[in-house]
């Protein structure tokens, strides 16, 4: 572990926490695209359909849940020596994409 420049805490010269934070950000963007497509699918039959509104709200909810998980993890990664990812966070992140997939199947069939 190389010591950082004067005044800074010990910092990884490979910027691993930073790269991991950016990976979370990229994943958030992917989740946004998937959630927008899901919401678009729900309101395809016109804006007056109540089932469509509920579906769009649900996909928004999944998106917000993913944002919350990613935000918490990105804050934890701001530490110079961040703690490891917990299985719960990993499962929550994967569950959000799984929820969107199940959602899509329900809309198709």
């Amino acid at each position: 572990m190389a010591a950082g420049p004067a005044g800074g805490a010990a910092r990884d010269p490979g910027l691993q926490p930073e790269r991991t934070r950016l990976a979370w950000r990229r994943t958030t963007l992917s989740a946004t695209v998937a959630a927008v497509l899901a919401a678009r699918q729900c309101v395809a039959d016109g804006p007056a359909d109540p089932a469509g509104i509920i579906g769009a709200a649900l996909s928004l909810l999944v998106w917000v849940a993913f944002l919350a998980v990613a935000h918490r993890r990105m804050r934890a990664l701001a530490a110079p020596r961040p703690p490891g990812l917990t299985p719960r966070t990993a499962t929550a992140a994967a569950a959000c994409s799984l929820a969107l997939a199940c959602f899509a199947v329900a809309l198709l069939v």
Partner: peptide, 19 residues
């Protein structure tokens, strides 16, 4: 952290397939 990034890459792949 490298393992975590690999995990995230797979999640992105999953999201892209769903999209």
């Amino acid at each position: 952290l490298a393992n975590e990034r690999t995990f995230l890459a797979w999640v992105r792949t999953a999201l892209a397939l769903v999209g």
